[in-house]
């Protein structure tokens, strides 16, 4: 049912796997540590009003593993190249978890091609005494359970029979995340001091029961990023766009409409 095209595009010599569907203002969704689980209902819903792009970051999923990628800064610069090459303007940038961190790294460098920023359970900064859960040390099964409030989502994932290719991607994604975020653990100590450079309307969306990145971070981002709004999604963990698709899409659309008005 996926109303999207999937292709591998070339960005300055790096092959990037891109899902794209719908029409309207461009929206770029940046995935988190575990990659993209296909064209989920949330993407379908967002693509009804937007030209939605959901890439696999380099080294993740089906994208290339480029030599040049040594850290989050490199990835942010890569996405600025991507925006230039695709000649995208007025982009609504959405990032979940590690992708939220990446979205901020992009935005503090250059907002000119952006129209809004949406952070969903974003990593990237550290509140002293409130570490992001150590997703590397946790048993992967436990991790899946911690991500969701509704354990039926976890059951579905844990009961899935993975193909060899899916298994490889899972391992690759895990390694890619460690490459970007092992030390310091999933944040950039310098990011906080540059967040004032985000000059587009910013929406902070959080699962009210996020056990990976504590909801305290939602409040923190709301405080640091000038003019940002915070929306808590009820009965959602770290992936509210999966667990509470409808309220999530409503929240995203509502915010963007209010800013467009």
């Amino acid at each position: 049912m996926a109303d999207c095209t999937e292709s591998k595009i070339d960005i300055r010599g790096t092959g990037m796997y891109l899902r794209r569907g719908g029409s309207g203002e461009p929206m770029l969704f940046l995935h988190g540590a575990s990659g993209v689980a296909g064209w989920i209902p949330t993407f379908q819903a967002l693509s009804e009003t937007h030209d939605l792009m959901v890439p696999d970051h380099p080294t993740y999923g089906l994208s290339d593993e480029p030599e040049w990628l040594d850290g989050m800064e490199d990835l942010a610069m890569f996405y600025l190249d991507f925006l230039d090459q695709m000649n995208l303007e007025g982009v609504h940038l959405v990032g979940n978890s590690l992708g939220g961190w990446l979205a901020m790294e992009i935005a503090v460098r250059n907002c000119t091609r952006l129209k809004s920023l949406t952070l969903v359970g974003a990593a990237g900064i550290r509140i002293a005494g409130k570490p992001i859960a150590d997703i590397f040390m946790m048993d992967p099964d436990d991790l899946v359970r911690e991500i969701f409030v509704d354990q039926s989502y976890a059951d579905n994932i844990l009961n899935m029979e993975l193909t060899e290719e899916q298994l490889d991607i899972q391992i690759r994604n895990r390694v890619a995340t460690a490459r970007l975020g092992w030390q310091p653990r999933l944040f950039n100590p310098n990011l906080r001091k540059w967040l004032h450079r985000i000059t587009v309307p910013t929406h902070v969306i959080w699962g009210d029961t996020d056990k990976i990145v504590d909801p305290a971070y939602a409040a923190e981002f709301g405080k640091i990023i000038a003019g940002s709004e915070v929306t808590m999604i009820e009965k959602a963990g770290h992936l509210p766009h999966i667990e509470q698709s409808e309220p999530f899409v409503e929240a995203v659309s509502g915010f963007l409409q209010s800013k467009a008005a």
């Binding site: 590397f136 298994l167 390694v175 460690a178 092992w182």
Partner: peptide, 18 residues
């Protein structure tokens, strides 16, 4: 040692890890 502590991501090649 629990598996994740013994083999953190990227410590081994994909092949060895699997």
């Amino acid at each position: 040692l629990p598996f994740e502590q013994l083999f953190p991501p990227g410590y081994m090649s994909m092949q060895s890890y699997k």
